[in-house]
Amino acid sequence: MTAPLGVAVIGAGRMGADHVRRIQEVVSGARVTAVVDVDADRAEAVAAPVDGCTAHTDPAAAMAVADVDAVLIASPGPAHEEALLAAFAHDLPVLCEKPLTPDPASALRVLEAEQALGRRRVQVGFMRRYDPEYTRLRAVLETGRLGRPLMLHNRHRNVASASFFTSSMLISDSVAHEADVTRWLFGHEITAVTVLRPTPSSAAPEGLLDPQFVVFETAGGALSDVEIFVNCQFGYEVQAEAVCERGTARIGAGHGLLTSTEGRWGGAIPQDWTERFADAYDRQLQAWVDATRRGEVTGPSTWDGYAAAAVCAAGVRALHEGRRVEVELAERPALYG
C-alpha cells in the first residue's frame, strides 16, 4: 500500500496512549485514525490531538470506520479475545499486546478462529524479541560457537508493584515475558514449571509472595530460571545469561553513561519498562507497520501467545500447589510452522 496505514488503537490507558504517541511521532508509514476506550472521556482526550482521529467506546464500531486498515490492541487482557474476534470478522491485521488472552482456553479459541481464516492476522506484542540486546543474544546462540545452550538465568526486577498486583500476576503478567524469550532463544517448548517461594520481602505488600524463583524445563533438555522481584525498590532491571557448552553470553547490564566524581563512580538504573524497552517498542511497532503494508504478518504469532498462556497457567498452579506442574499444550497447527 502507498498511503499511510490507518490504525485503530484499542485501549487509551498508559500503554495505548504511548502507542498513539509512538505512531504519530516515531513510526513511519502509519497514522492513528481511531482510538477506543470504555471510558469515553479518556478516548476523546487521547484522540483529540490527532488530526482526523475519531474516538469510540466500541472496538467493533471503530473497526468499521473506512480509514481503519489495522488494529493495535492495548486494552486489559480480559478484553482481548472479543477484540481479536472482531478484528477477524473485519479481516484486519492486529498487533496485540501481551497477553494474547489471560488463559490458555481463551487463547486456544483465538488460535482456532485464526486458523479458520486460513492465514495469520495477529502479531503478539512480546517486544523483547525486538530489543537489540536480546536479538544479539539470539544471533550468538544461533551461530553455535558457544555450543548447545544448557541453561538460561533470567532476572526481572521492578521498583514497586501496582496496588492491584497479586501473587499469581507475578507469573501471568511478568514471567510471561521470560516464558516467551526462553522458547524463542532455545527454539523448544517449555514442558514443566516449578515455582519456589522465598520469604517475602518486607517491602512487598501484605499477602504478596514476592520475590519468586521460577524454573522452566524445556523439550530440548535445557533449563531456564527466573528471579521475579517486583518490589526491589531500587530500579527496573531485566537481565539474562545463557550458559552453553563452550561459553556464556550475558545481556542487560545496561550501564550506559558512567560518571566518576567525588570518590565514587556509577550510573543510573531505569525506573520502569517504558525507559528500559523504549527502543524495543519502537522497533516492534515499525516492524509491524512495515510488514502490514507489505501484506505480511511476522513476529510472535498467536501460537506463541497461546504457548505463553499455557506456561503461565502451569506456573500459577505450581505457585499455589507447591509442586512441579507439566505444561499442557494442544498440537501445534501447520499454520504456525
Rank of each mutant, 00 (worst) to 15 (best):
R283G: 13
H90W: 05
F88C: 01
V181R: 08
G299K: 05
K98D: 07
E321Q: 10
A55E: 03
W273E: 14
T298P: 14
S106H: 02
A287C: 14
F216P: 02
M169Y: 05
W288F: 15
S163K: 10
R138G: 15
Q239F: 08
N231G: 11
R148N: 07
L117H: 09
A17E: 09
F186Q: 06
R294P: 04
R136W: 09
R183V: 12
A314I: 09
A17L: 05
G207V: 04
A268Q: 09
S202H: 12
D279F: 13
P132R: 12
E25I: 03
A107L: 00
F165L: 15
S167T: 05
T194M: 11
L196R: 15
E112P: 00
R294K: 13
V36M: 00
F213R: 03
L100P: 00
R250L: 15
P4A: 13
V20E: 10
E296G: 07
V175M: 03
V325G: 01
P76W: 03
A287M: 10
R145V: 09
S28K: 12
P198K: 10
D91F: 07
S260R: 05
A222F: 07
D51A: 15
L257C: 01
V327T: 04
V32T: 14
Q284F: 12
D39E: 07
E44N: 06
G267Y: 04
A17Y: 04
Q123R: 13
A219K: 09
Q115G: 05
A107Y: 00
G295L: 11
V110I: 04
A253C: 08
M151K: 09
V35A: 11
A192N: 02
A62R: 04
D67Y: 10
E275C: 08
G266H: 03
A240M: 15
S163R: 14
E112H: 02
G221C: 10
A179Y: 01
W303L: 02
K98E: 06
M15E: 03
A307C: 08
C244W: 07
Q212D: 01
V38A: 00
L100Q: 02
A43P: 02
P104T: 00
